[in-house]
Design a protein around this nucleic acid. Structure first.
Length: 595
RNA sequence: GGGGGUGUAGCUCAGUUGGUUAGAGCGAUCGCCUGUCACGCGAUAGGUCGAGGGUUCGAGUCCCUUCACUCCCGCCA
């Protein structure tokens, strides 16, 4: 394409273009001013081309003063670079363009942050001037990667026979799940829409409507606080749903899709081409978390029963165990020569995490087996033998111990597992370790209120023959509910859905919802399921997190074009903002602020 | 809602035990320089040390309050 702005882009010129007259447009990326000779690097989306001009040209003085990031159009002639001056860093580095004429297309004020730099900048300035930030190489490439990943996924899904549909953005608030974003309705005073937390009910309705396989790159809105891997406000899921499927069918589709995507867009190896399946229960025991990082070889072992022995005199732990606490440990291989500071740092770190610390000892053998370390003296050699047997620990290994109630214990051992592995440099950063976490419990007990609640998704299908499910022991009911985890990051969760209204009512009643409430809150769903619903299931991998992993970024804002800050503000667009009294009046809204 | 970290020039940062006029690099402005690609050299401008209060003869530095950003906990069916 050639027009008045350019005959070539900034990544196109090669040796074969030498002697051609060309026009290029772009941003002034960098100037190198030799006084009587000036180099200008012109940048556009595609690349960089070096231009050159000397003082004999009447444009020299003006170009010399030109601000970086000014947008200009340059006309000139392509010439060869001499051998010594070839730049192999850029694709156009064998040639350069002698400037004959130029025109400023867009002026530029003094920059609040440099574009030409690999330096890191304060986030608020980056977000306020996102349009400048996005010109910078790394993030510019991340955003292009995101676009390519989405195109690829869309193409794969089409090839697999999925149909892409849009679902409403203005919908109804649902009582389960995260906090909703609400939108007041002008035509229905006092009533509110909610932005969808996910198109959950719609995609099920699409299955009931007989479309068989659906997908969508779906925006999801949840009014929850941010984390580094969680944008406040909105994010995107590859939302998909299939009819007449079992759990394994979903697994096959998603595994193939993710393996293809990750192989195409990253050089990192996949640790498993077939994702291992870990039950929720195992995950919590072995890793203390339902999003285990399987690159980390450390495994958590239970030692509770050993603390019932008389030849262990670690009285604090023994007392806690008697009152219902558990003891779990992490074994580190061959750490007997690690300095005292290594152990003490981890203990100190654990205390900073709000735990009572991590006890530790190292197993040594001179003539007899012994435990070295602050709490080593509490363990007899027989008990050490027993500990080695049940943990697989060997002489020279160290054992970190934590003792508390199950939930706290899972949390601290999970964090400790990451921390210790990092300190010992056990995590291979050049691999992706995917796994499925399966068999989530249908319900869980709220520890504060003792109420039975849905642990994940109320629409999931419980496991087992329907007439044999024991609703008197709701905590024992498992669901066809699953997550995909990669390198410790939860990529998606999904489920085989419950398509039977009677069973749905029953499950909701266990969680304390009366039939009338279910009818009211989920009328669309329940009603639809009563008119011939196919068995169906699906999943929804998080697009932002997939791209984050592929771009090797630790923060989701690095793969999001226009993210909000931690307080859910868009510093560039000034959102959220005040609205006029007229607007409020139309919506029948008056503002009342907290004291 | 809670905890940690950070806040000094347009940008990135240094600033010792509380002690003279708060520094460097990049950027800006001006000058010199014809082969650079992080060009080089010289000069100049640029500061409410996030804000407010306190301790002190003296505060960028210590204390209190507060604000902003960020990380984490809670929250995230």
């Amino acid at each position: 394409m050639s027009n008045k702005y350019r005959t070539h882009n900034c990544d196109e010129l090669r040796k074969k273009h030498v002697d051609k007259n060309v026009i290029l447009s772009g941003w002034i990326n960098k100037k190198r001013d030799h006084g009587n000779l000036l180099f200008i690097d012109l940048r556009d989306n595609y690349g960089i081309t070096q231009f050159i001009i000397d003082k004999e040209n009447s444009n020299f003085k003006e170009l010399e003063k030109m601000q970086l990031e000014t947008v200009i159009k340059i006309e000139g002639k392509v010439i060869n670079r001499s051998k010594e001056t070839i730049n192999n860093e850029i694709k156009t580095g064998e040639v350069e363009v002698i400037i004959e004429n130029f025109k400023v297309l867009g002026t530029c004020k003094e920059l609040p942050l440099p574009v030409f730099s690999d330096q890191e900048y304060a986030e608020d300035i980056r977000l306020k001037y996102r349009f400048l930030d996005l010109r910078r190489k790394k993030i510019h490439e991340n955003i292009i990667l995101r676009s390519n990943v989405i195109s690829f996924i869309r193409n794969e899904m089409n090839n697999l026979g999925f149909l892409e549909f849009q679902t409403p953005i203005l919908t109804s608030s649902s009582p389960e799940g995260a906090r909703d974003f609400l939108v007041p309705s002008r035509l229905n005073p006092g009533k509110f829409y909610a932005l969808p937390q996910a198109p959950q009910q719609f995609k099920q309705l699409i299955m009931v409507s007989g479309f068989d396989k659906y997908f969508q790159i779906a925006p999801c809105f949840r009014d929850e606080d941010a984390r580094s891997d969680r944008s406040p406000g909105e994010f995107y899921q590859l939302d998909l749903e299939m009819s007449f499927v079992e759990q394994e069918d979903i697994f096959k589709v998603v595994e193939r899709l993710l393996v293809n995507t990750f192989k195409k867009f990253s050089n990192k190896k996949l640790l498993f081409d077939n994702f291992p399946k870990i039950t929720y229960k195992d995950a919590m025991q072995k890793f203390g978390s339902d999003k285990p990082d399987l690159r980390n070889p450390l495994i958590i072992k239970d030692l509770t029963n050993i603390f019932l022995r008389d030849d262990i005199t670690f009285e604090i732990f023994k007392k806690l165990v008697k009152s219902g606490s558990l003891v779990r440990c992490i074994v580190t291989k061959n750490t007997k020569d690690k300095p005292r500071s290594f152990f003490d740092n981890i203990d100190k770190w654990a205390k900073e995490q709000g735990a009572s610390g991590l006890a530790y000892f190292t197993i040594e053998k001179d003539k007899e087996l012994s435990a070295k370390g602050p709490v080593g003296k509490f363990f007899s050699k027989e008990s050490l033998n027993e500990i080695m047997k049940s943990t697989g620990a060997e002489v020279g290994d160290s054992i970190f111990l934590a003792c508390s109630k199950q939930k706290e214990l899972e949390k601290i051992t999970s964090l400790a597992r990451d921390k210790i592995a990092k300190d010992l440099d056990l995590i291979d950063d050049d691999v992706f370790a995917f796994c499925w976490v399966v068999d989530y419990p249908m319900f869980e007990k709220d520890l504060l209120t003792n109420k039975i609640e849905f642990s994940h998704n109320p629409f999931s299908m419980p496991q087992g023959e329907i007439d044999q499910i024991n609703f008197d022991k709701p905590l024992d009911i498992l669901a066809y509910q699953y997550d995909i985890v990669c390198n410790g990051i939860e990529l998606s969760s999904g489920a085989i859905r419950n398509h039977m209204p009677d069973l749905m009512y029953k499950l909701f009643s266990v969680a304390g919802y009366k039939k009338e409430v279910v009818d009211e809150k989920f009328s669309g769903m329940i009603n639809a399921l009563s008119y011939g619903a196919p068995p169906h299931g699906g999943i929804a991998p998080g697009i932002d997190r997939i791209v984050m992993l592929l771009a090797n970024e630790k923060n989701i804002r690095e793969v999001t074009m226009f993210p909000m800050n931690q307080n859910a503000q868009d510093l560039m667009m000034n959102a959220p903002s005040d609205v006029s009294d007229k607007q409020l009046k139309e919506l029948n809204i008056s503002l009342k602020f907290k004291e």
